[in-house]
C-alpha cells in the first residue's frame, strides 16, 4: 500500500493527568483476615509503572498478583498504603469507567445475557452519546482485530470456546482505547498460535496507541515476547523490577527456579537471546 504519510506528527502524548507514571504503589500492605488467622499477602510493596511500558507481574501461586491488579482497578482496598493511577486514587477511576482502564479478567467475565457484539459495545453504549450504527461498526472492527469472524458477533458467551471468550474479553477491554490495559493471564487457555497472534496484536496496539499494559502471566513465551519490564513478586513484595535481562540476572531462589528451569531456559533461548547466552547458566539447573 502506498504510504500517504507526509509528516510524522508529534508523538501522541498520553495526555490524561500529570506525571510520567501510570501507576504508583507505595508501601502497600494486603492482609487477609479470617477469624483466628491472618495472612499477609503484601508487605511494604512498592511498584511504579511508567507510561507506555509493558510490565509483567511474575510470581508463584498465591503471591497476590491478581489481588494487586484488583487494587489498581479499585475493586479491592489495600489494608494499608497508597495506590494511585494517573495521579488519582483508583476509586476516582470508576467514574471515568472504561475510558481510562481496560481489564481482561482471567475467566473473561463476559456478560452472559448479551451476545458477543453487545458485550464488546457495552461501554460505548453506556456513554449514551454515540449513534448506534457507529457503535456497532466500532465493535465489529474490534471483534475482527482480535481475530474473530463477523459471524461470531451474534453468538452468546455460553456458545464460545475458551480461546474465543479470551478474545471477546480482550476486544471488550480495548473498545475505548483506554490508556491503561490490565491483563490477567491473557494467553492462558489459548493455543500456541493464538497466543502468538495475541502477542502480535498487543504489540501493534502498544505501538500505535502508546498503551500502558500491566500483565499477569505464567506464559514465559509471552513474558519475553512482550514485556519491556518485569516485576517479580516474592517474599510479599516486589523483589526486583527491570528488563528481562536484569531480572534473569538477579540472584534469588525464586527467580532461579522460575527462569532457569527447563521451560524458562527454552523460552529465553528461543525468543530472547539468539545473540547472547542466558545469564547465570546454572549447571545444577539441568
Amino acid at each position: 500500500m502506498t504510504e500517504p504519510v507526509i509528516t510524522r506528527g508529534p508523538a501522541a502524548d498520553a495526555g490524561e493527568g500529570e506525571g510520567a507514571n501510570a501507576v504508583e504503589i507505595h508501601k502497600l500492605w494486603t492482609v487477609f483476615r479470617s477469624p483466628g488467622h491472618e495472612q499477609v499477602v503484601h508487605r511494604d510493596l512498592d511498584l511504579t509503572i511508567r507510561r507506555g511500558e509493558v510490565l509483567s507481574l511474575v510470581g508463584g501461586s498465591g503471591t497476590g498478583k491478581t489481588v494487586l491488579l484488583r487494587q489498581i482497578l479499585g475493586l479491592e482496598k489495600p489494608t494499608r498504603g497508597d495506590v494511585s493511577v494517573f495521579g488519582t486514587p483508583p476509586a476516582a477511576l470508576s467514574a471515568a469507567g472504561a475510558a481510562k482502564v481496560g481489564m481482561l479478567f482471567q475467566r473473561g467475565a463476559l456478560f452472559s445475557a448479551f451476545n458477543v457484539l453487545d458485550n464488546i459495545a457495552f461501554a460505548l453504549r453506556e456513554l449514551k452519546v454515540l449513534p448506534d450504527s457507529l457503535i456497532r461498526d466500532a465493535a465489529m472492527v474490534r471483534l475482527q482485530m482480535v481475530g474473530l469472524k463477523p459471524e461470531h458477533a451474534w453468538k452468546m458467551p455460553s456458545e464460545l470456546s475458551g480461546g474465543m471468550i479470551k478474545r471477546v474479553a480482550l476486544a471488550r477491554a480495548l473498545i475505548m482505547d483506554a490508556p491503561l490495559l490490565l491483563l490477567d493471564e491473557p494467553t492462558a487457555g489459548l493455543d500456541p498460535e493464538g497466543a502468538d497472534e495475541f502477542c502480535d496484536l498487543l504489540r501493534g496496539l502498544h505501538r500505535e496507541l502508546g498503551l500502558t499494559v500491566v500483565m499477569v502471566t505464567h506464559d514465559l513465551d509471552t513474558l519475553f515476547d512482550l514485556s519491556t519490564r518485569i516485576a517479580v513478586l516474592a517474599d510479599q513484595k516486589v523483589i526486583v523490577t527491570g528488563t528481562p535481562d536484569e531480572v534473569i540476572a538477579y540472584r534469588h531462589p525464586f527467580i532461579e527456579q522460575y527462569f532457569q528451569g527447563g521451560r524458562g531456559q527454552r523460552a529465553a533461548l528461543a525468543l530472547h537471546a539468539p545473540a547472547h547466552a542466558p545469564h547465570g547458566t546454572d549447571p545444577t539447573g539441568r
Binding site: M1, V141, R207, L209
Partner: peptide, 15 residues
C-alpha cells in the same frame, strides 16, 4: 496524516 493515524485508520478500514 501521520504514521500512527495511518495505522489506526488502516485497521478500521480493513475490518
Amino acid at each position: 496524516l501521520d504514521a500512527s493515524q495511518q495505522a489506526v485508520l488502516d485497521q478500521v478500514a480493513q475490518y
